[in-house]
Every structure is written in structure tokens, then in C-alpha cells.
Design a protein around this nucleic acid. Structure first.
Lengths: 200, 200, 200, 200
DNA sequence: GATGAATGAGCATTCATTCAT
DNA sequence: AATGAATGAATGCTCATTCAT
């Protein structure tokens, strides 16, 4: 990478981190492209050098923390499925907590209106989460930790349902509940109940 | 009620039912006040005779079906708590299915951004749902069906978390899952696991 | 018409006449909606109460003078076709001269890119002119002034071709030629040559 | 010409031919500099190595076909003026047909708004056409084919008026009329009528 | 000569809300 | 109670052009 490319990369990073800050603080609808660029110290038009539409920066913001989770999970060999999922729940809720209400809102909005940006369908957060969970469950089937007749897709859906429910509920509770602590209880009771029939 | 009051009531009803239709079809952001009034056959200004802000009509739309559920539950004497909640889940998901993706989106948005309309905080759907569930659980404690140390508020939150998770997930699944059927399975397994420790 | 409707009509008229002034002076691309509304003394949004798009006001501007020509021609009974067309040419070029280069440019643009605003196809200037000419020629056929085998549509096209050619050329000449004088010569020589074969 | 100069010439040619393609397809306003450079396989900035402004490339595009016509006419010795002009009309309309509606639109726009690019006034298409016609008529006066009192400039203007009228009308007719066939009829009747008084 | 990141002015359009009638 | 004309703030996005590399 030459100097110019590095400068460009820095501009993009600056834009993403600035947008994250503003998003956490105010929420997507309450900020405009000019807010982001002004704070990032670049011209308005520069935003569009890196993102086609205002919404597109949200996807990039989300991708960073969740791709880290995926990497971590891949490295966890020999850990049983319940533990893996528990870890996933923890990390997911950590991201939720870190991102805050406004970012969760944006994620949920993506989920609820996937057709708003049709061309990005596969790049959306929920599709990403769904695939990740199917991978986790699928490999547990391969290693015969789960029975071969495990309804992988259904279970993936149920788990996502839990995750988004928890996320939604955490947003709702307005800080009343400690998400991590709550998640723990949740995993102990619920996950076992869900997976019992399919564990070998 | 005199003639004028009846006419006014009809105008308001017409406005609400028209808004519901449009909301189901297009979603809140995609419609404007003029769409509603034009379709309802009244002038734009008339909307503001009945609603202070555009958002206010959504609350009125939601209140109708859920207040029916509350009434039905109150009449169910001698039914055990799991059954009651199962019924509540069924009815809730029926409303979800009926309202469709756009209305769910709006509910979730209310939930995630309760501060957007501060003065209506108590009128919001999630507060309403939370209170309803606490009532249901509270009376089960009174009738000694549940132990007196049952953490009513926590359980209410967990259940709401499930409900919103299911709602979100149903929206996401794009019609792939049959919500009612899915709810049934869900209640059988999950609810029991959650309530077992507190049942007498 | 009540007071409010009259006020509304005046607002629209004010908008049209202001737009005409600015258009004559600067041309369509060089003015923006705000220029018009500011000069007309109304709010920007008011423009959109009366016109759906910025371009739409041009059609309204053009319609006024040309509909007058149509009315005058209808009243001219017993005048022979060559004279009628000569009169039409004169009046057309008067409008051209009055509207000035910028408005001509806009008309020609409409003509050359009729698909830019598909829904207005029939409202466009050239369609309007074409229909008017076919009417004039058609009635001359009816009154047996022209032979029944006169190719009305072809001739209408040829005449429009002349008119737009003259208009274009006048714009080009940068004031060098007196359009009315020129038109006169033109009609004497050309029109006769064109119509001779079809006159009875 | 060294290697570098040849490469530069090729880049410029590539840019012109690419712009022509895009212009024919979409029209000047609908394409931007980046469309041209991307399709030509060069960087955006390269465009400005060869053209000072976006519009400038249009002039270069037009110059090619019309300079060919000029050359051909110069070689036509001993051909009478009517025939020469008829040939000119044919070739002009061939160019019109080949360039298509979008390019005609751009020519006409240049003609109608010569002040938009003041410094290029003499390089514009209409000035070019006007000079060419004056040359043709002028030499016919020299060879005493036309009377010495022939109003060369007036006739040149009239002919240009016809040409642009035909061009405009062809654009308008949306393919209904066969331009070449039409031109032929036109020349036979009109040209004779115009030139008769001045032929010796 | 070629590059492409950065610029920033420019603008049409939307729409919730008000208020005089 | 109903009307609907008027408001004007708000904003995403485009793109010709520049210039440091």
C-alpha cells in the first residue's frame, strides 16, 4: 500500500469511528452526513467516496466487533456446544452493551425492514448472525456432539430470536438489568432445555 | 352524545382505520399525514384535531387489539398460569401476524427509543405489556399458584424478552415460520423451564 | 370562488409571472426554485403547492400565449389557408421574440427530449403545436380549400419543422435578423411552394 | 511523434470515442466525467489533461463528421449549387441520424445558448456550419453560377434554419419520418424556390 | 502524462405543523 | 369541527474540478 492508499484508509477509518461515536450518542436519524464529516474533519463529499448511502456506514460499523466473535469461536476447539453458545451470547450482549441503544435500534431496524436496502440483503446483520449460528451448530453435528437429525435451521432461528429478544429487552429496560449477568442465567436454563433432545 | 360528537367520533375512527391500513401496507415512514387524510376523505388539518403529532395515531392503533387480550385474560378464572401465558403468547402472536411487519417495526421502534416521545412514556406499548404481565403473575402469586418469593418483575421481563424476540424473529423470517405453531412448541418447552422453580 | 380560492389563484399567477421574468432573463438552469419563490414573496414550499416539479411551471408559462393564438385562429372565418398560416407564423414568432432565447431553449429542449417527463407527453409544447396545425389544415380540407388527398400530417410536420427551424435560427442569429420581417418573406415564398399542389 | 505522444493521442481518441458512445446512448446531462473515464479505462483526472471543461469534448465529437463533409464538398468541381446543397443536406442529415437524438440535442443546445461557453464561440457548431455555407454560396457567386447581388448571408441563414428545423423535427418525430427520404423531397421543392431568383 | 482522493457549493423536494377562515 | 393554503427547516446526494503524488 502506498502513501495515498494509507491516507485513504485512514480517512475511511476516521469516518467509521466518528460515525460510531455519534451513533452511540444520538442515533441514526438524529445525525446527518454533515455531522459525521464535520466531526471527522473532512468535506461532506468525502463521505460518498467511501459509502454509497448514509446507511451503508452502519453495516461497516457492525461488522468489526462481530467478525471478531466469529474468529474467536473458530479457534475454540474441544469446547462443548452449550459452552460455545454461552460464550457467543456473552460476547453478543457485550457488543450490545457497548454499542448502546441507538446502534441496537439500527440493527433491529435492519432486521425488521430487510427490503429497505435490497442490494445489501446478504450483508445485513441478521443474515450474518444466522449464518454464523448455522456454522456453529453444523460443526457440532459433524463432530457428532449433536444428533444428525438436529433441526439446525430451526434452532438457529430460535437462538437468534432469543438474542434479539434479549437485545430488545435490554434496550427497553433502560439499564435496569445487567445484561451479562442476565445472559448467564438465561443460558443455563434455556439453552439446556432447547438442546437436551439433540445432545448425544 | 349529540350529532356533532358522533360525527367527530366517526371521523376519528375513520382516521384510525385508514392509518392502520396504510401502516400495514407501507410502514410508518413511508406514509405521511396527507396520505392518511386523503384516503380517509378529510382535510389535512382535521388530523390535528384528533392527534397532536403524527406518531400519536400509532398508539391508538395498537391499543385496540391488546386491550382485548387483557379483557379476555381477566375473565379466565381457574386456569393455571402456564396455560394463561400460553394463551397470551398465542394472542400476542396473532396480533403480530395480523398487524404485519410494518406495525411490528413501529412497536419495536417505540420500545427501543422510548425517549423519542417522552411525554407518552406510560402510554407506550412496552410499558403496557409489562404491566399486563406483572398483573397476571401477581395474581398467580396471590392465589398461591406461584410461590411468594417468585421474582415477578424479572419473570415479566424475561417473558417480554421472549415475546419481542419472537416478534422480531418472525419479522425476520419473512414468512418462513408459522408463528402460531412455533409459539406452541415454544411455550411447552420454555415456559415450563422458566416457571418450574416457582410453581407450588 | 371564495376568498381563499382567489388568494390561491393569485399566488399561482404571481409564481408563473415571476418565473417568466426570471426565465427570460437567466434561463431555466440558471434559476432555482428559491429564486422564484423569493422574488414572488412566498415560501419555497408554496411552489410545490402548485407545481409538482420545477419543470412543470414552464409548461404553464408557455400555454398562456399559445392558447391565445388558437382562439384567434378559430375566429378567423373566410380567411384563406395561406393567410391563416402566415398569421400563425407571425404570432408564433412574436411569442418567440417576446419569450426570448431562454424560453425558446426550454421549448426546444422539451421537443428534443420528450421522454424526460413521460407523464406530461401530451402536455408538451410540440404536441400542442402539432395538434393545432393539424386542426387548421384539417378544417381547410373540410371547407374544400385544400384537396381531400392533402397529406395533412406530413404538411403539419413540415410547417413545424419550419417554425422550429426559424426559432432556432433566430436564437442563433443573436438579434441580427428581425424575426417578423423575415417570417413575412419566408411565408410568401415557402408556404406557397409547399401548398401549391394541394390548393383547389 | 515519440512513444509518449502516441500514447497521449490514443488516450485522447479513446476518450472521444467513449464519450460519443455514451452521449448517443444517454445524452450529455445523464453522463458524468467519471462515466467517460471509467469506460475509457483511465483515471478521472486524465480527462482534464485533454479537455478543460466537460462540455469541450462535445465539440471535438462533432467536428469529426462535419469536417469530412467540408472536404468532400471542396472536391466537387463542376457540380451545380443546388446539387451541392442537396448533397450537403443529405450528409448533414446522415450525421444527424447517426448521432441520434442526444447529440442533436447537444448541438441545438450549443446553438441556443452560445453564451454558455463564451470563449469557444467561434468553435461552435453553428458558427462552423454558417461559415461552411457562406463558403459554398460565395464560390458559386465567384463562378457566376449565382448572381452577384445574391444575399449570401441571408441565404446561408435560411438554409441553416432549414437544416436545424429538419434536425429538430426529426428528433421530434420519434423515428416516424425517414430523414433521408424526407430531405430529398425537401430539397427538390424548397431549394429551387429559394434560389430561383438568384440563378443565372 | 496519469492518478484518484478530496473538495464543497449547489439544489430539488418533502412534510409535519399552523392558523385564518 | 373542518378546511387547506402556507410555511420553511431540513438533508441526502451529485459532480465538475483541483492538485499533490
Amino acid at each position: 500500500m502506498n502513501k495515498r492508499q494509507i491516507a485513504a484508509q485512514n480517512t475511511k477509518r476516521k469516518l467509521i469511528s466518528t460515525a460510531l461515536e455519534l451513533l452511540k450518542e444520538k442515533g441514526f436519524d438524529a445525525i446527518n452526513v454533515e455531522d459525521i464529516t464535520k466531526k471527522a474533519g473532512v468535506a461532506k463529499g468525502t463521505f460518498y467516496t467511501y459509502f454509497k448511502r448514509k446507511e451503508d456506514i452502519v453495516l461497516d460499523i457492525s461488522r468489526v466487533p462481530f467478525s471478531e466473535i466469529a474468529e474467536e469461536l473458530e479457534k475454540m476447539d474441544g469446547v462443548d456446544i452449550i459452552e460455545k453458545l454461552t460464550y457467543y451470547f456473552h460476547r453478543f450482549m457485550e457488543c450490545v452493551e457497548y454499542g448502546g441503544i441507538h446502534i441496537c435500534r439500527q440493527w433491529t431496524r435492519d432486521v425488521l425492514d430487510p427490503n429497505s436496502v435490497p442490494e445489501n440483503k446478504d450483508g445485513q446483520k441478521w443474515a450474518y448472525d444466522y449464518e454464523m449460528l448455522k456454522d456453529i451448530l453444523g460443526s457440532a453435528v459433524k463432530t457428532v456432539e449433536l444428533r444428525s437429525d438436529t433441526p439446525v435451521e430451526l434452532l438457529a432461528h430460535i437462538i437468534i430470536s432469543e438474542l434479539y429478544g434479549m437485545m430488545t429487552c435490554w434496550c427497553m429496560s433502560d439499564g435496569e438489568f445487567e445484561p451479562l449477568e442476565w445472559t448467564e442465567k438465561f443460558c443455563k436454563v434455556q439453552l439446556k432445555a432447547i438442546f437436551e433432545p439433540y445432545l448425544k
